[in-house]
Structure formats: C-alpha cells, structure tokens
Amino acid sequence: MNTKWESHDGAIVATVDGRVDGANAHEFQEALEAVIKASESAVILDFEQLSYISSAGLRVVLLAAKELRKQSKQFAVCSLAGSILEVFKISGFDQIIPVHSTQAEAIAAVNA
C-alpha cells in the first residue's frame, strides 16, 4: 500500500494503491490523518489503483469521514474498481460518502 497526495484547487487528492488490509490499516490511518491535517476544505480519496480493501481499511475510511465531518470539511471518493465499489455498497458507505466515477468529477463536486 502506498498513499500519495497533492493539492488540487483547495482540495487534497490522495491516491491509494495496492492493498489495504488488516496488516497495514494502521499505516493507512496515519497517512489519512496527515492528509486531513494538511487539507483546508476537502479531501478526495482516489481508489483507481487500489486492488483490495477489507473491513480493516473501511474502518479507517469511516474514521476519516467522521473527522472531516467534525471539521466541516468535505469528503469524497472516486474511481472505485468493481469489487471495491461492491464492498462500499454492501457496507452502505456509498450512502454517507459521495462516490464519483472520476477524479475530475470529484474535484468539481467538492469545489462546487
């Protein structure tokens, strides 16, 4: 798992690649905490390169959603591949976190 991030028009876009599982979820959590701290108005997680996520990884996504809500910052995810989108839907996360098909769409939405 690797997390890289950059600023896009006030929003931080973090790209997560590889696997997020029970063995590295704590590293993912530390990376997201740094991203949230650095963000001014919004955080977007780009999952295009993410190949696997389990409940341990989704737990971290939910923690981030709660923290951003508390700080009145926006949160969105984008580019979820088939099985990743499926676990997002099964857990109902697509109802509480905006899901966009592309990064450009997500950036436009948080800046709207």
Binding site: S55, L63, A65, I90, S91, G92, I96
Partner: peptide
C-alpha cells in the same frame, strides 16, 4: 448485524467483517 443505513455520526466503527462475508 450492522446498521448500514445509519448516518455518518451514528455509524459505529467496526462490525462489518462478518457481514461482508455473509453478503459476498
């Protein structure tokens, strides 16, 4: 059984693992 329809503030952290397996 997790409440997958709850709002962000009310969603408990965790409790999804076995549910995923049952669903998939």
């Amino acid at each position: 059984q997790p409440d997958v329809g709850a709002a962000i503030e009310d969603r408990p952290i965790g409790g999804l693992g076995v549910y995923f397996v049952r669903e998939m």
